[in-house]
Design a protein around this nucleic acid. Structure first.
Lengths: 213, 213
DNA sequence: TGTACATCAGTGAACGCGCGTTCACTGATGTAC
DNA sequence: TGTACATCAGTGAACGCGCGTTCACTGATGTAC
């Protein structure tokens, strides 16, 4: 057992932190979770990481750059969660599709800090193309799923995949942002958001002529 | 023409502002529009209104109280816009329903400051019940519209109105927040958000067995 | 119609605070030979 | 394997700034009689 290999998360080695970049991001997530994306400061993140207020500048150009990094990581985690839920459409596209919606809501609920950094931080996406790119990858999972669903329809009744994907995204996102988010801005409703979304998706798919009655 | 009656908006009478409360709200809207709900300060609102930094305390307990008032007014305007679009379901519930969706998107696009104060300011709704109440009234318009649509269905195929209203709200809100908002957080898509929403609503209604093919 | 007075809605100076950022610096780490 | 040196990733003190909030105050307005 040596000092160097066995320190836990957040422990300090001495003069050099060793993992400051990660520690700052972790601190940012905690602060955003508690106070929203507005109530997070560079200085406080430094303090939480146990480091002088000048240290973060070795890793991030400024406050926005840190938030952008958080948003990017959020989208990476989001993409993983969605892809895991979709699981290439197994066992059936329809079942997998419903899992996908559930995963969207679960992410908003369990990772409110990521969620608000990704969607409500006010970052200009054009200033941070790498964030946008990760967001596009997450959307790609959704679109892929829509394409698989569409493929089960006869050729003359297939809707444009982009349109369908944007519909499903809007529906899921609206529900997540209004009723499923994991912070105090959640609006209470007398039912489970997962079931609400599932019902909406069923009706929508029915409207497309899929599954059903 | 007297000095007292003819001053324009924002003009000062002298020692007493005469309309400070309104001026502060107007200033807050401008600041939120430019910098988001986080980038708005009590002090700057006072400056914009041409008044000392202590003056706002005569009208608002603190910064949050001002934002809450902005959100409340936003919901009032929103309710009016939705009710106007719905127009009691004239000439037909279906046509009016589509106008309603358009009005939702138009509000997000034309009033981004209200929109973000209402939905993204991080206010705890339970701390400001009057904001929640106004939000509920806006939702009431949507629900009323859904009930009118549902009434056109045979009795044995009517979905629960609350469920349908929450579906439509989620769909509209997601689209507004992602693709139709009037600020820099809007995500560009290669089609008009209004048409995208209209298509989604048609498919959804079709799934309910309304209108159609 | 005047006058005295209460109330209202501002002023402006002051406070303590935390933030973002910079600077010259220094301890720790990595590498060339 | 040592040693010299370059580079990296921190320190800590300092700065100017704007914020929120308070305070005793005062000018303007409204009202009772």
């Amino acid at each position: 057992m040596t000092w160097h290999k066995d320190r836990g998360p957040g422990a300090r080695r001495g003069y050099h932190h060793g993992n400051l970049r990660e520690a700052l991001i972790e601190a940012a997530l905690n602060l955003i979770r508690e106070k929203g994306p507005g109530g997070f400061t560079f200085a406080e993140a430094a303090r939480a990481a146990g480091v002088s207020p000048a240290a973060p500048y070795r890793h991030f150009r400024d406050r926005d750059a840190l938030i952008a990094d958080v948003a990017k990581r959020g989208f990476e985690a989001f993409t993983r969660a969605l892809a895991l839920a979709w699981d290439s459409g197994r066992p059936t596209p329809l079942k997998a599709f419903n899992r996908l919606g559930g995963a969207y809501l679960a992410f908003a609920s369990q990772e409110p800090a990521y969620f608000s950094a990704m969607f409500e931080s006010g970052l200009s996406l054009s200033d941070y193309p790498e964030v946008q790119a990760e967001g596009d990858r997450a959307f790609g999972v959704l679109r892929e799923a829509c394409e698989a669903i569409i493929a089960t329809l006869p050729k003359d009744r297939r809707p444009p995949p982009l349109m369908m994907a944007l519909h499903i995204w809007s529906l899921s996102h609206g529900m997540a942002a209004l009723f499923a988010r994991g912070d105090q801005a959640r609006r209470p409703i007398p039912m489970r958001a997962e079931e609400l979304l599932e019902a909406a998706v069923l009706i929508y798919l029915d409207g497309l002529g899929i599954g059903g009655r």
